[in-house]
Every structure is written in C-alpha cells, then in structure tokens.
Write a protein that binds this DNA or RNA. Structure first.
Length: 570
RNA sequence: CGGGGCGUAGCGCAGUCUGGUAGCGCGUUUGCUUGGGGUGCAAAAGGUCACGAGUUCAAAUCUCGUCGCUCCGACCA
C-alpha cells in the first residue's frame, strides 16, 4: 500500500480535549476522529488495528469452541421487561420508539437477547454446553464520557454467553473463557491481569475483571506482590486480627466545639485519626442506617450495599442525619441515637475496640473511652467488612502488605447462575425427560477500549509503539527519494517481497523531507521501519530498525535481503 | 445531576476587561529553496466570531436566553 493513496492525517499539535497520552496519540496519529462528545469515527489506520484485535478475539473464541452469531443492536423493550432491567437500567440505556410506538433499547449488553435466543434453540441436554458470542457495537448513555475510546457512548464489545446443564459445566465454561481471555490479551501484546471483582447485582458470584495496569486507569486495584492476590477495590478484602473485647475506663463526654471532621477533632484532642470511630448515616432503600468505621478509613458502599441486602445506598442529607441522631453531621456516634430503631453496623476491625472516641449525638461534643461492646448496641451480627482497602493493608491470603494500583478494565468473565435463564424459563430436558434451568455465564471484552489500552501501555515520547500483532501496518518503508526511479523501484520490490510473505506494509512515497517522514512513522508507531534512500543505497543498502530499538541498532542489508530480515525481527 | 472553564479558519490559540475594517502559528495550495529527524523565503485560498433575541450610529466584544464541548465530583450490568 502506498501512503499517498491512503487517508492518513497526522496532527502536529495535541488536541485540546485530550487528557491522557493514549487519547492524544489516538487522535494525533490519525486513528480516530471525534464526531461528537463520546462518539468517534475510526479512520483507516484505526480501523485496521480494530480489525486485527477483533480477529484475535474471534480466533480465540472459536478455538475455545464458542460460536459467533450477531444479534440486533435494536432490542425490543419486552425482553428487558422480562428481567426487570427495562427499569433497573435507568438512564444508562438509550431508548427509542418506532412509528407504532413500540419501545426499543440500543443494546448496552445482550443477556436478554441471547437468553431468549438460547431458549428457542436449546431444548435438549444433548445440545449442551453451548457458548455463543458476537462482536457488536454497544451503546451506553454515560453520564460522563471521557478519555476518548476509554469511556464512550458507543463502543465495540465482544460478548459471549455460556449455557450449561449444571454447576460443574458452568464452572468449566467459566474457566474456558478465562483462559481464552489470557490468550487474547497476550496476543494483543498486552499485560492484562485477572483481578477478583464485585458481582454487582449478582452478589457473591464468581467474577474476574482483566485489567491493564496504568496510571490513567479508572479502577483501583488491591495488589499483593507476595502471593499474587489482586482484587478490584470494590471487592478487595484485608486480613483483620480479631481482638477480644478490651477494657477501658467509663466513657465520658468532652466538649469539642467547632471540630467536626475527624481531622479537626484529632488535631483538637492531639490524637491520631485511628483512635476515632467515624460514624456515617446512610439511607439504604429508604431507611437510615448508621455505619461505623475506623477514623482513618472510608466506607466501601459496594460492600455496605451487599451486607445490607439493599438496592441503593447513599449518604443521608443533613436533615435526615439530624432527625435520626439528634445531632448534626460531625457529632454523630453509635451511642443511643435519637432514632432507636435505626440499625447500626460497624466494620469488622472495630470488633472488641475500646478506648475510642465517637460523636456524642450532641452538637459540640464527643465521647471518649468508648467500648463498642459495652457502650453501644452493636451485636456480633452487625460487624462486617465494610471499608475500602488501603495501601499497606494485610493481604487476606498471605498477610503481606498490599499495594493499590490503577487499572483499565478490558474484559470481564462472570458467572450468572440462573438469573436470566430463570426469568426467561430457558430450560432443557435431561435424559430423564425432566426440565432443568440452564446455568449461564457471560464474558465481555471491550474491543475498542482494548485498542486504546494497548496505546496507553505501549508508547514513548515520540508516539505509539505497536505490538506487531495489532499494528495498522507491520512495516513502513520510508522511500526518501520517491522521484528517483531507481530508488522507488527498490522500495517497490521490498513492498512486493513483504506482501508475498503475508506481511502488511505501507510505503511512505510522499514528497516530504526525511524528518517529516521519520516523525510520522514514530508517531503512528509501525513496528518495523525500512529506510530506502539514494544515500543509503550508495553506501551499501537499506536500513532496517524496529520501533522499539535505539537508532544505533539499525541493520544495513542489501535490498534483496530486506524482506527476510524484516520477517526475522517482526 | 452539582461545581468550574471554554465555544473565533481543518488543528492549536490571541483579540472580549475598555464596542469602531477579523488576527497569529500549524496545516492546505502555488513557486523557488532545502534534501537523513517536523528546512527557509514569497504569494494565495480558507470565517454565519456556536445559535437566538436585545442595547447601540456601530457588537467577536455589553445584556438575557438557548445549544454544544470540556475538567472536577457524584454515577458506572
């Protein structure tokens, strides 16, 4: 392919709306162009990479025995009403109506559609297990699209769904997909790590997210170097030493005027934040709940939601706090609140704690020497792991010190159980003619997000450094003297020789100065560069260099040997 | 959804406070020049100053409204 015949536009300047490197490079290298907020067009170079990633995903899915289909993007509301998600999805889902006022969603995911399809096709145990997948555009009305393809309103996703007879089969399907994902990301040149994740509405279901570790990532991950434990912060646990109830002096009120936050009270009393118990009032499905955590920790709302079995939890507003406790936020504590009906829960690490300082439920006052066992009505069943893990916390497996890292979620594998199959009555007949509900799993890869994650993980100050498997072209031939026929002929011969080997190559035949061409080649990041110029040919040959090598690693070879040399280092 | 910022040529921006002929750099086109890491010179094309209403002799500039983009936060099967 000749550069002058392709639509490539690189930008010398950084787009004003890009924050992170991968987004800047995506646009500067001309892979995508923004059409509107959260909506991008893939230009020819971007399209080539997107197709290569798709192809890797497709090959590994097929290799795992999954079968590709394609389901409509436009999905009838009835399917979503069957599982109750027409309402549950809320504003995240794009909705529209046809002229007959039938309602539809633009698919944000496809559990309903696939379960409904499976119900119609799968009837007998003889057909199971089955894994079907599609690579299809998905739509989500994100409140805040950002970082280019990282979080956009429209994105390409591979979604797969498994249907099994029993729990063992579902387990097998889960790990089959898990291993396929390891291969997919490895082949894309990505270091993606599986981390334990929260099951969301599915509660304790087994689920892993695959994350590309990067500072620009939007998710926090707890990471244990010692034993390999990795978990999303929503889910991550820590080892807590259980303590017997400690003794302390009777509790006593102290005036703490104008000291509301833990930091203020800690400074006022000259004590560390960990000596305090932070008490927060939440509203869980309409009812107030007081949540107590150590003063130096934050509440994990996902864990709280799960522990309470609530659909929604949110911090109560000041009015509700006052009504429930008799004090304003800042002076709230787990001791005799005004609303004696209000449930109180506490983090497991507070079990047996004594000598702590808590709010007195009276403005301007705190209580000291508080024993949670003696002075509150917290029962054993009210303690649970409710905090967000911090750097240095003990790993739940080995006790080693954990680190906190950032990650970009590029895939997730998820055991669904019978949530969807039961809703649709997706059953099969076993060998005793009994009807059984199929056990499902779902498995997603963010294909377009993966594209950007690769750039985020693999770039330098000059531009993208594509892994060979996903580069828009594997090789660029820099023809420095396109107007000199003999030189152009050499480039042409190398192009043909590479194509004969099945290597995709682009020849930069533009009438530009060498500097411009080198800058563009580095910016776009072709894995191998072959320089063909009159000067070089006179001196002995063409120059071959990998994008990730220093200039002094350049190989000089005869033109006839160029294609073999390139094939050898790709 | 709450708070901030911004909408001026394909891209990046100045001009707005203090109203008076629409500017700069990059890119594009043409000519010359240069020729191994974004050469240099010259010329040219390219604009509904987001949109609407108002104030004024006169509005990119002032007022009101609308729309869009963006950052921080909340949210994110």
């Amino acid at each position: 392919m000749k550069w002058t015949k392709t639509l490539i536009q690189t930008l010398r300047e950084v787009p004003a709306d890009a924050e992170i490197d991968s987004h800047k490079l995506l646009v500067r290298a001309g892979l995508v162009r923004k059409v509107a907020g959260g909506l991008y067009a893939y230009m020819p170079l971007g399209m080539r990479t997107l197709r290569k990633i798709q192809q890797i995903v497709r090959e590994e899915m097929d290799r795992s025995g999954a079968q590709e289909i394609v389901a409509p993007i436009l999905q009838p509301a009835e399917l979503w009403r069957t599982t109750g998600r027409w309402d549950a999805m809320g504003a995240n889902m794009f909705r529209l109506s046809d002229r007959g006022e039938h309602e539809f969603a633009l698919g944000p995911t496809a559990e309903e559609v696939f379960t409904d399809l499976a119900k119609g096709v799968l009837n007998s145990y003889r057909q199971l297990p089955v894994i079907i997948y599609q690579i299809q555009w998905k739509f989500r009305d994100e409140t805040r699209p950002r970082f280019g393809l990282m979080r956009s309103k429209e994105f390409l996703m591979k979604d797969a769904y498994s249907f099994d007879m029993d729990a063992d089969g579902a387990d097998k399907s889960y790990w089959t997909m898990y291993h396929a994902y390891e291969r997919i990301f490895a082949r894309c040149g990505l270091k993606a790590v599986p981390v334990q994740a929260d099951g969301g509405d599915m509660g304790d279901s087994l689920t892993h997210e695959f994350h590309v570790l990067a500072d620009a990532g939007e998710d926090g991950i707890a990471w244990c170097e010692k034993c390999g434990y990795a978990a999303n912060l929503e889910r991550a646990e820590r080892r807590v030493e259980s303590a017997a109830d400690a003794e302390c002096a009777p509790c006593e009120e102290v005036a703490t005027p104008d000291a509301r936050t833990i930091e203020q009270v800690a400074a006022f009393m000259g004590l560390a934040p960990s000596a305090f118990v932070k008490s927060l009032v939440y509203v869980a499905d309409g009812k107030c709940v007081m949540v107590c955590v150590p003063g130096d920790r934050d509440v994990n709302e996902v864990k709280l939601k799960r522990f309470l079995g609530a659909k929604n939890v949110a911090l109560a507003d000041n009015g509700a706090v006052l009504a429930a406790t008799g004090a304003n936020a800042g002076f709230v504590g787990p001791v005799g609140p005004a609303d004696a009906q209000m449930r109180i829960v506490a983090d497991l690490s507070l079990k047996g704690a004594a000598g702590r300082i808590v709010g007195a439920n009276r403005d301007g006052f705190h209580l000291k020497s508080v024993s949670l066992a003696r002075d509150t009505r917290l029962a054993d069943a009210d303690y649970a792991d409710l905090t967000i893990v911090k750097a240095g916390d003990a790993c739940p497996h080995c006790g080693g010190a954990m680190e906190i890292k950032r990650g970009i979620e590029v895939g997730q594998v998820f055991k669904l159980g019978t949530k969807y199959s039961a809703a649709f009555n997706a059953v099969y007949k076993n060998d005793k003619l009994e009807e059984k509900t199929m056990i499902m799993g779902c498995y997603g890869v963010g294909v377009s997000r993966t594209l950007q994650a690769i750039i985020e993980q693999s770039h330098d100050k000059d531009g993208i450094v594509w892994p060979s498997a996903v580069a828009p072209y594997s090789v660029v031939v820099e023809l420095l003297d396109p107007s000199v026929p003999d030189v152009a002929k050499v480039a042409e011969d190398i192009e043909l020789a590479l194509e004969a080997k099945g290597i995709d190559v682009i020849v930069d035949d533009r009438e530009e100065r060498p500097g411009v061409k080198f800058k563009d080649a580095d910016l776009i990041g072709f894995p191998v560069r072959v320089v063909v110029g009159a000067k070089g040919l006179a001196a002995g040959g063409v120059e071959i260099k990998r994008r990730d090598e220093a200039k002094d690693k350049t190989r000089i070879v005869a033109p006839a040997a160029a294609a073999d040399t390139v094939a050898g280092i790709l």
